[in-house]
Amino acid sequence: MSIIDYVAPYDFSALTVLSYMLVLAFYGYGVLRMPEGDRPGTGRTMTFILGVMLCYGVMQTRFDYYSQYMFFVHRGQHLILHHLGPFLIALSNPLPVMRFWYDRISPGLKGALQPVGFVYRGLQQPLIASALFVGLIYFWLWPPIHFDAMLSRNLYWIMNWSMLLDGLLFWWLIFDPRSPALSSSLGYGKRMLILALVAIPQMILGAIIVFSRGMVYDVYEVCGRAWPMEPATDQLIGGLITWIPPAMMSILGILIILRRAMHEDGKYSTRSTSIKVTTS
């Protein structure tokens, strides 16, 4: 097989390719046209592009073929779509680019987008966001649902897109660059609490898959594997990928938030003074 076969999409989706192109185009245009002072540095820009390209890579290259016919590759695909890719995108802080575009959209469009904002705020309620983040993983790994999703092309695309969009929502909630002392963004304590909270059910699910004696996901058995591999090994590695890296990313997220909280310690006095007023 030539390099082109590896880079070209296995299952071409015009909507997917178009979405990625638009995201990169809007980001690139925004970065180039915004005032020097607001512009994200090279490191942040590269982090953003890396996050986007990782997600694109697992959706529209040969990687997608292996994801469809090997359980452990599929788990790797979701690790990138739901965790690593959105993690990098949110961490790169594309807020200046979003502000740049927000200032340029017409008031009429802003009005039309109001319901979207309403839904967004609903989904970003801490408990809803956590339940959705873990719930989606459990939902798509529920054996009968997983079987159908791997058999139906439409369900497969819905599965991957829902994982990506939910990943973006969740990690944006966690890495929201606005300080909770100055804005209505979520407090650092709550962010760390959420990260610890979502890690536990993921570890349980991963452990269940790893320690299952029988075949939990027989769709890969029924539909043929990309290459002959012991089914038990495939399931074991897939379980480990569900278990360990997401837990590590929760800890990494907690460390990043902790560092930010320590940096901001004593920097803003708005909260502490208001507490003093109420307690005295």
Binding site: Y65, Y69, C223, G224, R225, W227
Partner: peptide, 27 residues
């Protein structure tokens, strides 16, 4: 055709006699 029905097949390396296994859908 295999892709249309969400399945795949693959060939193993041939042995000394040129025989090789083929992985395919079992359903």
């Amino acid at each position: 055709l295999a892709k249309r029905y969400r399945t795949t097949f693959g060939y193993d390396e041939p042995d000394a006699d040129g025989n090789y296994a083929v992985s395919h859908s079992s359903a």
